[in-house]
Every structure is written in C-alpha cells, then in structure tokens.
C-alpha cells in the first residue's frame, strides 16, 4: 500500500470488478494514511455503486466523493459536485472508481490535464477473464485502448481480478495468471495485483506474486 501513488484510477471493462477493488483498496490505504478519499465517477451503472459502501467509509473515516444522485431514482449520468477535489486537494490519497468501458472513462477526460501535470498517479486496468466480452488478449486490449482514448490517459498497470463471484475456485485464479500476463506484456505494463477472495489468500500467497485479498461486497 505504501507505494501507491497519490491518485490511483481504477478502470476497465464494465463488470470487471472495479468498484469492489476501489472499496477494498481505500480501506487498506486508510490503515497507513490519514487522509484517504474514494471518488465515484461511474456514469454508467444504476445499481451496485461505490456509495453502497457509505457506512463502511464512515466507519473508517474515508471521504466519499460521489454524486448525490447515485443510488437514487434520478436516472442521469451525474458527476459528483466535489470531483475537482481529486486533483485540487493534494492532501488526500485518492482512489478513483471509473465507470466501465470507454463511455465510463469519458468522465476522466476533464481531469486528465491536471493529473498529468501533477504526475503522481497510476491508472490500473482491471481484467477478469471470466467476463464474456473480454475472454482473451485481443478483446481485452481493444477495450483497454478504447478507455485510454476516451480518458486521454495511459494505463500503468494491470489488476488481475479474474473471478466467478462467490463460486470462484483456486484453479480459476491460477488459470487466469497467463491471461493477465499476456495482456500486461502486450500493453508493456506490469501486473501490479492479482486479487483473491480472503479465504484463499493464505494458501495462494506463496504461489502468486503481488496477491491481494478481497472481501466480497453485496450479495442477494
């Protein structure tokens, strides 16, 4: 956690697990830094938003930058009114949760010049090989390039979040490693994290580099 840049942008194909990662990262980050904020720039999803974890954020003293319409019946792609704090309040370690695909990444564009100017950021590509529209190298890299084009910012790392929800097995994770490595190699960036649900962490820790335990969120 200590080597996370001031701004960490979580992006990727929609449904790849960005929000869950953003929530988990921010909670872990808060253990080491005083001022941590999560910014929900999702303009795509109507349900299952960062804001659903608002109680968790309050409990942990994490600042939430979110549209006041998120999770309500106001069905418009609204951005948070405090969104400029992402670039302007440099006292915070910032996790940015972008919406899926190039459409979601559009929300980033207006911040990109300032993010580049400060030059203390990572933009991480979340990938899940079990998602039907990004099952291989070619489709995933195509989506990644579309996101870069829309957000006017280049990815700096890959988060391998390959999973089948609560039914994920250890074999599923192990079988996804080469998929993530191929993507990283093609994009000339490193795999910075491989996520795993917490119960598998102990067993897989020695076997996978940069393993990161996740707590699963919402379930119905």
């Amino acid at each position: 956690m200590k080597n996370l840049k001031r701004i960490t942008i979580i992006s990727g194909h929609y449904g790849s697990g960005k929000t869950n990662i953003a929530v988990n990262l921010s909670i872990d980050l808060k253990k080491e830094f005083d001022k941590v904020a999560v910014a929900d720039l999702d303009i795509v999803n109507p349900y299952f938003r960062t804001k659903d974890s608002i109680l968790e954020f309050k409990k942990n003293g994490i600042r939430l930058i979110s549209s006041e319409y998120a999770g309500t019946n106001v069905d418009i792609p609204a951005l948070p009114q405090e969104m400029y704090a992402i670039t302007d309040d440099r006292s915070y370690k910032m996790i940015v949760d972008l919406g899926g695909d190039d459409r979601g990444a559009l929300a980033l564009g207006r911040l990109t010049p300032k993010i580049k100017e400060e030059n203390d950021y990572d933009m991480l590509l979340v990938v899940n090989r079990f998602r039907p529209l990004t099952p291989d190298l070619e489709t995933t890299v195509t989506v990644a390039r579309e996101i870069e084009e829309a957000g006017k910012l280049k990815f700096t790392g890959v988060i391998n979040n390959s999973n089948l929800g609560e039914f994920t097995t250890k074999e599923d994770i192990l079988s996804s490693l080469s998929y993530a490595e191929e993507i990283a190699k093609a994009m000339e960036i490193p795999v910075v994290l491989t996520t795993v649900k917490r119960e598998f962490y102990g067993e897989l820790k020695g076997k996978i580099k940069n393993l990161y335990p996740l707590d699963l969120q919402a379930k119905i």
Binding site: F130, P135, L164, D172
Partner: peptide, 16 residues
C-alpha cells in the same frame, strides 16, 4: 467451471 462466465442478468438474457 471451465465453461462458466461471470455475467450480469441482462447480459445473460442477451447471450442466451
């Protein structure tokens, strides 16, 4: 699990 994918309900309808 080899043939399983992780899908939203809406996507599952479309692909089916």
């Amino acid at each position: 699990m080899a043939n399983k994918v992780l899908m939203k309900g809406n996507e599952a309808i479309a692909e089916a």
